Computed example of a mutant assay.
Amino acid sequence: VLIAGFFLYRWVRDDAVNAIEAVNPAGTGFLGGLGLPVVLAWPMGGLLAAGAAWVIGKTALGLRSDYLAIATLGISEIIIAIMKNEEWLSRGVKNVNGLPRPVPYETDLQADPAFVEQAAGLGLDPATASTIYVKLGYSLMFTAVLVVLLVLAQLALKSPWGRMMRAIRDNEVSARAMGKDVTYRHLQVFVLGSAICGIAGAMMTTLDGQLTPTTYQPLRYTFLIWVMVIVGGSGNNLGAVLGGMLIWFFWVQVEPLGQSLMSLLTAGMADGSWLKAHLLDSVQHMRLLTMGVILLLVLRFSPRGLLPER
Rank of each mutant, 00 (worst) to 15 (best):
S260D: 02
E255Y: 06
W274S: 07
L257V: 01
G272N: 08
L242D: 04
N237H: 02
V231M: 13
V227W: 03
L257D: 01
V231G: 08
G239T: 00
G233I: 07
L275G: 14
G268L: 15
M269C: 10
L257F: 02
V229C: 12
K276D: 08
F223T: 10
V254F: 11
T214W: 02
V241G: 02
L261C: 10
L219V: 05
S282G: 14
Q259R: 09
I225F: 07
F249Q: 01
V229E: 09
Q253S: 06
L280F: 11
S263V: 05
Q284C: 08
N236D: 02
M269T: 12
S282A: 14
G258N: 07
N237G: 02
M269R: 11
M262D: 09
H278T: 13
G272K: 07
P256E: 00
G232M: 13
M269V: 10
Q284H: 11
P256S: 01
D271M: 15
V227M: 09
G244R: 06
L275P: 11
F249L: 02
Y221Q: 03
W274A: 08
S260V: 01
L257P: 00
G243K: 11
T215M: 00
G243M: 08
T222F: 07
L265V: 13
S260H: 03
S260N: 04
V283C: 08
I230C: 12
S282I: 13
V227G: 10
Y216Q: 02
H278E: 12
V254I: 11
V252D: 04
M228V: 11
G243L: 10
D281Y: 13
L246I: 13
V227Y: 09
L279F: 14
M228I: 10
L238N: 00
P256L: 00
L238F: 01
G239P: 01
V283A: 09
G239R: 00
V229Y: 11
V231T: 14
G244P: 06
M262R: 10
S263H: 07
T222H: 06
S263Q: 08
E255K: 08
G233N: 07
F223V: 09
V227T: 13
V241S: 00
M245N: 04
V227A: 11
R220F: 08
S282Y: 11
W226T: 13
S282D: 14
D281N: 15
S282F: 14
L238P: 00
L224P: 08
T266G: 15
H278C: 13
G272W: 06
W226F: 14
M262L: 08
Q253L: 05
L265Q: 12
H278P: 11
G239C: 00
Q284W: 10
I247A: 12
L224V: 11
L257A: 02
D281Q: 14
V231L: 14
V252A: 05
A270M: 15
G258W: 06
V254M: 09
N236Y: 03
F250E: 11
L261A: 12
F250R: 10
G233Y: 07
S260F: 03
V283D: 06
G243D: 11
G232C: 14
I225S: 03
